[in-house]
Amino acid sequence: MEIKQLKYFVEVAKREHLSEAALELDIAQSAISRQITQLEKELHTILFRREGRNIYLTDDGKQLFSEATKIIDQLDKTVRLFHNQSESNHFTLRIGYVESYVSQVLTSLIQAFENESRSIIEPMLMEEDEILNALMTDQIDIGLTELTQNIKQSKDIYVKALFEENFHIYVPKDDPITMATNPPLKQFSNKYLYELYSLPVNIKQLLTQFIKTPIHTITHPHLAQYLLNKERGYIITPSYHLLERRPQTWTAISLEHTELKRTICSIVRQDNQKNDIQLLQSMIEQLLSRNATYH
């Protein structure tokens, strides 16, 4: 039994007339007759009673009409469901991003984009090592992540370096290290460090090459301020995380001159044909691109 046969049968049953059904379906009357005959043979029954030029449903025909109508209605609903999902998916752009300065401007990006587009953005915070695979397996449309060798070597994606992310260390105001000009990381080797929020994995790995003491994680600025007030250690954090200014209590030392930095880029598959993908790329570049030295 084929869906085509059921559709032909239903059209004939509605009209109880072969030629009218043929006109509606835009096919030859003989083709309809042939398909209904095959259906009757398969079901081992007679579906229509023929009286001259007129045809009428038999009892078995009425039963099949009831069931076939349900099947075709469900089929139509299923087709509409997937069509709607496909259209909805075409107007949904998924951004996978790592924790970085991107988080600070993501709301502005989404608002600006959705004011100019019918599409919507679904943001997804992801781990660094998840984003490239998610892009290549169509789980996301654009990735905002660190520029790595794997990304540089990929031939199937468009890559745009956006900005260089740097770090700084908050230290007590009277600490002797505040007198140093551009102190190298090794000068912090015996200092007690706290990371305010988790540092990127590769940044922490690089830092531990210079720092001999354990680096502990804290997740609230108030705790960082308390530790600085009590001179209990230094606080290291990305430059976009700012503590309340208290020049009489602590100061921030930039680490921009050190190896502690990473480049954030946008990546998108070159075969992505989604609606407004180019508009989103353009707005990301306008909002996030900064002059910097990229590595």
Rank of each mutant, 00 (worst) to 15 (best):
M1L: 11
M1I: 10
I3A: 10
F9P: 01
R15D: 03
E16I: 08
H17Q: 12
H17Y: 12
A22G: 08
L23Q: 15
L23N: 14
L23F: 10
L25P: 07
A28Y: 06
A28W: 03
I32S: 03
S33E: 09
S33A: 13
R34D: 07
I36G: 01
I36D: 00
E40M: 09
K41A: 11
L43C: 09
T45F: 04
R49C: 02
E51Q: 15
E51I: 12
R53W: 07
N54R: 15
I55W: 04
L57S: 07
L57K: 09
D59W: 12
D60A: 15
D60H: 14
L64K: 08
F65V: 02
S66W: 09
S66V: 12
K70H: 07
D73G: 07
L75K: 14
K77L: 12
T78G: 04
F82D: 05
F82M: 08
F91A: 11
T92Q: 14
T92N: 13
L93Y: 00
L93K: 03
L93C: 06
L93H: 01
I95L: 06
G96W: 00
Y97E: 00
V102W: 00
Q104C: 07
V105R: 10
N115W: 09
S117R: 11
S119D: 09
I120E: 11
E130Q: 15
E130D: 13
L132S: 05
A134M: 06
A134Y: 06
A134W: 00
L135G: 00
D138S: 14
D141E: 08
D141C: 08
I142G: 00
E146D: 07
L147C: 05
T148E: 02
Q149K: 14
N150A: 12
I151L: 08
K152S: 08
Q153M: 11
D156L: 12
Y158A: 11
V159P: 03
K160V: 03
A161K: 11
A161M: 05
A161T: 04
L162H: 01
I169H: 04
Y170M: 05
P172S: 04
K173E: 06
K173I: 09
D175E: 10
N182S: 11
K186R: 14
K191F: 06
L193D: 03
Y197S: 06
Y197A: 07
S198C: 06
P200F: 02
L206A: 04
L206S: 03
L207D: 00
Q209I: 04
I211C: 05
T213I: 06
P214W: 03
I218A: 02
Y226K: 15
N229V: 01
R232W: 02
Y234A: 05
T237S: 08
R245H: 10
R245Y: 05
Q248P: 02
T249R: 14
T251H: 12
E259V: 12
K261E: 01
R262Y: 00
R262M: 03
I264H: 00
S266E: 00
V268M: 09
D276S: 12
Q278M: 11
S282K: 15
E285Q: 13
S289R: 12
S289W: 06
R290D: 01
Y294E: 03
H295M: 08
H295Q: 13
